[in-house]
């Protein structure tokens, strides 16, 4: 009898439990340990990027000619660079810029990608044809070169760089969204929605996009590190954010010059960069598992 009583109790708690789509996703995401660790690491990075500059006793413009090329010590946790600037502070500012560029460019990319992809996929026909040929052209142009041109034209601020990266990398997202919309569009529940009296706009916003969000989120989590790489690449060749504003690409290129005598100057920025990219990639893996119903 006791066993029976227990059974009844579990059913009752199941009844009360409020559940959302999000809780189901989280349940699946949780199973990927590396992804969970990466998620916490990304949150940690975001906190550091916000709090770091506020609590650091140094500023990226503060030079100290009595403390050049210092290796890690109590005053300078990651040592100093060739101008006596605190490397930890530089890396935190670099992190902040990388995150702003990564998320900002991701946002621009998703916005344009969803707009173009959803319109092309949902309307189809001639509209689809024209938009997708435009996407093909965007794909064919080498994006790094296009970025250089855009940065030169728009100027070298953080905002113009993220805009340039976003503007040159949305083509893949547009294709992905279009494919998703085409798949979802012909599903029976879209017809059901029409029968219920939903307008085209409601159908796109309430049924098509929520059901395409999985692959979009996964693609985004892989594209954010892509944008960070692009920004570092631009900095590496001296077309990134304007010095003395630090950027990871700039720090790595600076560190590479002193690599043999002062290896800490390249190890710390390159290590931070690699860990961040890795975390986003693992997070993307977990996200893909979460959106895949077969995980359960």
């Amino acid at each position: 009898m006791v066993e029976n009583y227990n059974d009844v109790k579990t059913i009752n708690t199941f009844e009360i439990k409020e559940r959302s789509y999000f809780s189901i996703l989280w349940g699946r995401f949780k199973k990927n340990k590396m992804a969970v660790i990466s998620l916490y690491f990304i949150i940690f990075l975001i906190v550091v990027a916000i709090v770091g500059p506020l609590v650091s006793p140094y500023h990226y413009t503060m030079m100290d000619y009595t403390a050049l090329y210092q290796t890690p010590n109590a005053k300078h946790w990651m040592g100093t660079d060739d101008g006596g600037r605190d490397l930890a502070t530089l890396i935190v500012y670099g992190l902040r810029n990388a995150l702003i560029v990564g998320f900002g460019a991701g946002l621009v990319e998703v916005f344009i990608g969803i707009l173009i992809g959803a319109i092309a996929g949902y309307l189809g026909g001639q509209v689809d044809n024209i938009l997708m040929r435009f996407v093909d052209i965007m794909f064919a142009l080498p994006s790094f070169l296009l970025n250089l041109v855009l940065v030169v034209v728009l100027g070298r601020s953080l905002f113009t760089i993220l805009l340039a990266i976003g503007l040159t990398s949305w083509a893949g997202m547009a294709r992905l969204v279009r494919g998703q919309v085409l798949t979802v569009k012909q599903l029976e529940y879209i017809e059901a929605a029409k029968a219920l009296g939903a307008s085209n706009l409601t159908i796109i916003l309430r049924y098509v996009i929520p059901n395409s969000v999985g692959p979009i989120a996964v693609a985004l989590s892989f594209n954010i590190p892509g944008a960070m790489m692009m920004e570092s690449g631009l900095s590496l060749i001296g077309l990134g954010v304007m010095p003395p504003m630090p950027s990871w690409g700039g720090l790595i290129s600076q560190g590479s010059r002193w690599m043999l005598s002062y290896p800490h100057m390249i190890l710390f920025p390159a290590g931070a960069f690699a860990l961040t990219i890795l975390a986003f990639t693992f997070f993307g893996d977990g996200l893909r598992d979460a959106f895949d119903p077969k995980t359960e």
């Binding site: 789509y21 599903l187 029976e188 529940y189 059901a192 049924y207």
Partner: peptide, 16 residues
Amino acid sequence: QMVFQNPYLSLFPHMT
């Protein structure tokens, strides 16, 4: 109103 052949495909999968 209409009821479709396959209920699993015609219900909104992302909604309770």
